[in-house]
Write a protein that binds this DNA or RNA. Structure first.
Lengths: 131, 131
DNA sequence: TATACTGCTATACTTAAGTATATTGATATA
DNA sequence: TATATCAATATACTTAAGTATAGCAGTATA
């Protein structure tokens, strides 16, 4: 992915890249997909487990978002014929790959906080000059 | 960033990582921030230039989003005393660093499309077995 | 004088996203 | 019988996000 090394050449930005970014943003779209994917990165879970782990989510939103993630090939849904019924949600291989995106987000977020703290409160981060 | 190598250890997920991801999502939040940042990655631009390059955006949204990006330390705003007035918007160093996140999104998006095409239409991607 | 440019802001509106609360059916437990 | 579990769905509602349209001040050109 060397594209952004030659940013000045606008014409080299292919439509497929724009679509790719849109797909990725879509995967995280809204308030709840990131925490749902986040919790599923630790392993497959049942509906109620996710509901408990993703604080404050309503079953309506969880149901809706899981459906969305399923049709987008990020999550699989498996029903087991138990009583009461067991439904397991698991990230697809592609879904698991999202951790790379998350990592780049963590890296940028941490970096950005550092920078902004330094800009806002430089004194706190500068070594004190002795008199 | 070796954290996700030990995903099973939930306790090791620090709050700072969650905040970092939220900050990053916030940087891209909404319909317009990504295209605005995208166009500014190619160099600093004036208000009307951005308005022309980011198709269908209204001045209201552009103004609002630029303000948002400015207070979040992603864009700088410089006013030149010309007639008519010139206002230049430029990514901060931190803003420019977002291209790493974009690249990871491009990578995932392209990969994900590939995977989904292969799952939906496997025949198209399988070498034909000769009779 | 009329028009155009710049970088916006104001007002009113529509659409999308999210919340609150109740309910379902099949089964198990107290 | 009453209550609880699971995995949801239904309905009504609120809030957030985005759109449409018009207008401003200052200057410059036709």
């Amino acid at each position: 992915m060397k594209f952004f090394e030659k940013l000045e050449n606008v014409k080299k930005c292919p439509v497929s890249y724009v679509l790719a970014v849109q797909d990725t943003l879509n995967a995280f779209h809204g308030k709840w997909k990131m925490p749902i994917i986040g919790t599923l990165l630790f392993g497959k879970k049942r509906f109620k487990e996710i509901e408990r782990e993703v604080r404050k989510i309503t079953p309506r939103m969880l149901s809706q978002e899981l459906k969305d993630l399923e049709v987008n090939g990020i999550v699989t849904r498996t029903v087991y014929n138990t009583t009461p019924v067991t439904v397991e949600y698991e990230l697809t291989p592609s879904g698991r790959e999202l951790h790379h995106v998350m990592e780049s987000m963590i890296t940028w977020g941490l970096q950005h906080r550092q920078t902004n703290i330094m800009e806002t409160l430089p004194a706190l981060n500068m070594p004190k000059q002795s008199a």
